[in-house]
Amino acid sequence: MDEAILDVDHLSIRLDDQLIVNNLSFHICRNEFFCLVGETGCGKTITSRAIMGLLERKMDVHGTILLDNDSNNLIELTEKEWRKIRGKKIGFIYQQPSLALHPMLTIGNQMLGILKNEKVIKRKEAREEVHQQLLEMNFSNPEVIASAYPWQLSGGMNQRIMIGMSLLRKPRLLIADEPTTGLDTINQQIVIRQLIKFQEKYKMSILLITHDLRLVNQIADTVAVMKNGEIIEVAPLSTIKNNPQQYYTKKLWNMMPDAWNIMMREESYAIRSK
């Protein structure tokens, strides 16, 4: 945990007169699992879009975002320069994988397109690589999956495909915007395990945006808590868990089902013993 791969400094985003994100600062280190936690509508997703440069033009963005010791401020890049960074250096995973995949192209076709985008490659080799990638994503029958359309597959499958797709270009940083929302518990675990596996394999950092605290508890290295467009606390997981500085963090942490259960149980014991 030494070098920062992503350094966000005093990031503010405003739409018309409304301040959506206020003075946000954090950095993500190499090989780190960074979780951005907060309630719905606190500006998590907007922040992630800002890092990818995907915000609409009417949004007013200020601050600096530095990537990988590069001196360029990401906010000031043109669309052409962005194209070299998106996908190549930062990968992005969406909350609704079934909508984020092109409905008129087969999975294999879309993955081929990404490979061809990168380098000049023979069709056969590319296909082989796609199958390899699908196998790595724990699909037992890559041929079938490659010839399927996204709307023929389930949400969990699509999410795994989405992850495999963004990993085709081996980005240094992967941003996952609530990747497990809308999946059942088993699929959530499959997706998360794959994320962990690939983090180890490719030595990349992951920025996980979520409101699922069980997930945070399971995998996070560092946790940032957001509230009303501001980060109120950034700390390693253990600190957040055991010694939160902010009342909101403590409250949020107590909302976690297990913790909440334990707390309630203790409370009821206390009542009974009286």
Binding site: L54, G87, L99, H102, N117
Partner: peptide, 17 residues
């Protein structure tokens, strides 16, 4: 407006594609 268009942009695909 579709999400897959934004996702394609996020993948860093070439302008032509």
């Amino acid at each position: 407006k579709n999400l897959y268009f934004e996702a394609a942009r996020a993948m860093g695909l070439k302008k032509r594609v």
